[in-house]
């Protein structure tokens, strides 16, 4: 820790002139630096981060590629009346490759991976690589939204019910028990029969279920262990209101655990989404699970069109795995007992 010993004790003014947000920023930076060190000690977290980084690149590069493709006009003989530019060929939703192949015959879809379509095409003639890239962005938005919502709720509810206890606590804990005993997939299937589930609604439902479910209980028990620390009493003596204590003392101290659950939340949200998509219960333009769903509903088995199962399957596994790995890397941070020092 750097001590500002270069400043003589008389010149208070210099330190005071530091504005509040700068102090906060410094504090945050310090905390980040320390945590980063502990995080990087375990390699699995870093591996997870690298994979996430790769997916971010994938998601960002898709719109750039689309812009490039739409500037590439095809010669008239390659158009076959429909395709005007490469964008029409590679569009993840409306695309269709009608260009003749080497043998001057149009490609038959689904086409196996080739130079023109590295991940092949789906039964409707759309490029799978383009679909995977396009979906990456959707999965990110969906996973992070749902996980953020659930962790935000779980943290707040956990802290509040730990702090107040009594009836509030009893209510939220019984609610958590109820959510925990809910058969997850059958419930979602039931829900999809009641209303058309789109990604936003599914994110909302998963966020709510996660936020009032098991995570609340874990975060509450963590908050309980904070609640009995003497500094909470000290804050009460200083005259701090209930909300002051919850937001300034309890929540900041359970936040590392919340962050851990944020990572796991992304994993579980994307997994549920993939399952529902595969079962065809989700209204979405395209998603990794839907690629497999199309293959299945058009009657292609793994042996006939392996790329339509293998590639999205591996993608989902990698994506979910990466967040899980980051979560595991955070484990050391969250759980002081695992720390070497």
């Amino acid at each position: 820790m750097l001590v500002k010993n270069s400043i003589p004790s008389g010149s208070d003014a210099k330190i005071i002139s530091e504005s509040l947000w700068r102090i906060r920023l410094n504090l945050l930076q310090q905390a980040w630096k320390n945590n980063w060190q502990i995080f990087t000690e375990k390699k699995i977290g870093l591996v997870g981060l690298w994979i996430i980084g790769f997916f971010i690149l994938l998601a960002i590069s898709h719109p750039i590629l689309m812009a490039y493709w739409s500037s590439q006009e095809l010669p008239p003989e390659a158009m076959m009346g429909h395709n005007k530019s490469l964008a029409d060929v590679y569009d993840p939703i409306r695309g269709l490759d009608l260009r003749p192949g080497k043998d001057m015959m149009p490609l038959s879809h689904p086409a196996a991976p080739s130079w023109r379509h590295p991940f092949g095409t789906d039964p409707m003639g759309r490029d799978v690589l383009s679909q995977i890239m396009y979906s990456a962005r959707i999965e990110f938005l969906f996973g992070v939204f749902s996980a953020l919502l659930s962790v935000f709720l779980a943290t707040l509810v956990g802290a509040v019910s730990a702090y107040f206890g009594g009836k509030i606590d009893a209510f939220f804990m019984r609610l958590a028990d109820l959510v925990l005993t809910l058969p997850f997939l059958p419930f979602l299937i039931f829900l999809s029969s009641l209303l058309t589930l789109d990604l936003f609604k599914l994110g909302l439902v998963l966020g709510l279920l996660g936020g009032f479910g098991g995570r609340t209980i874990v975060l509450k028990s963590q908050a309980l262990s904070i609640k009995v620390r003497p500094y909470i009493e000290a804050a009460k003596i200083a005259g701090g209101s209930h909300w002051h204590i919850i937001f300034r003392h309890i929540i900041p101290n359970i936040l590392p655990l919340s962050f851990f659950y944020l990572m796991l939340g992304v994993t579980s949200a994307v997994m549920s989404e993939a399952t529902l998509s595969f079962l065809g219960l989700l209204q979405a333009p395209i998603s990794w699970g839907l690629i497999m769903n199309f293959a299945r509903s058009f009657g292609y088995s793994f042996y006939e069109a392996w790329w339509l199962y293998l590639i999205p399957g591996v993608t989902i596994t990698l994506f979910c795995g990466s967040f899980y790995l980051v979560g595991r890397g955070l484990d050391t941070l969250v759980n002081p007992k695992l720390r070497k020092r």
Binding site: R229, P230, Y231, E233, A234, I237, R248, H249, P252, N253
Partner: peptide, 13 residues
């Protein structure tokens, strides 16, 4: 009030 354990009586953050 001054507490028995000054360390525990301050938020570590």
């Amino acid at each position: 009030m001054i507490f028995q354990d000054p360390y525990a009586s301050m938020n570590p953050r």
